[in-house]
Design a binder for these strands. Structure first.
Lengths: 133, 133
DNA sequence: TCCAAAATAGTAATCATTATTGATTTAATT
DNA sequence: AATTAAATCAATAATGATTACTATTTTGGA
């Protein structure tokens, strides 16, 4: 009908990102979709993720072990990256928010802001305690 | 005298980082020092930067065009990354600060926090206006 | 159905970062 | 100054994420 629909694969890539709560890497999206779509190409995933980023449908939230991790939830919220297990956690906005959505420096125009904490998550902290006990 | 001094090259790498206000990449540090130290190796720069990060002497503040950018100023402050020219700017702490230094989620232990804005810097904004005029 | 443009698969290339290894430097001790 | 073990390094190769390329396929409209 209208010309603005995404191609089948493009839509599936976006859906996979939006429905995942894992803050996936391109590779994860590829591996996950590959089961349903055996002829999917990794390059296609990268190309579409870059497109989604330009269109603001997806944001890059962190770089973990050399892999970029993205989020299909573009609402303003912070993240926690566990250096132990590599998981990325959402930090609910009612717990912590970015103080200002735009940088107040004169003449600078802000498009996005990223607030990320690094450390050890509750699970990995707990595991470490067990090992030491 | 004491055993805790850095080797000559290690110290020079740290000095180059600390005295630069460019939020340099490993490659920039290498290219800059290479003039004074012709037998410097890029691997040595990477190895020492990783060491400095572990020791908390240096922090990774952003990934620009696939290159990690570091800061020798480890005091808590935010950064602005210009998507146009790739420069990384310090945002003075009296203008904006991270709301909370540690993530308040239960059981999570925070080691560091990074707040980064992305957009167009004043110089690039100005240049764009000139071109359009 | 037919066509032109957009999108894709598959593969090769790029490029930042890390690993390896043998030589050199350091630091502490005689 | 000489000795020696450990730390450090240069040079190079390897790794791995991302991008580029090209021939083929899909898409959406006439």
């Amino acid at each position: 009908m209208s010309g603005q629909n995404f191609s089948k694969k493009r839509q599936m890539i976006l859906d996979t990102i939006k429905s995942s709560h894992t803050h996936p890497s391109a590779k994860w999206v590829y591996d996950t979709l590959k089961e349903q779509v055996p002829d999917l190409s990794l390059g296609t995933v990268y190309r579409n993720i870059n497109l989604f980023k330009e269109q603001g449908l997806v944001v890059a939230v962190a770089n973990v072990d050399g892999e970029e991790r993205i989020d299909g939830d573009t609402s303003a919220h912070a993240h926690f990256v566990c250096k132990e297990c590599g998981k990325v956690f959402d930090i609910p906005e009612d717990i912590i928010t970015i103080r200002s959505e735009s940088c107040p420096m004169e003449g600078f125009s802000t498009e996005s802001a990223v607030l990320t904490y690094f450390g050890k998550c509750n699970f990995c902290t707990h595991n470490a305690n067990i090992k030491e006990a």
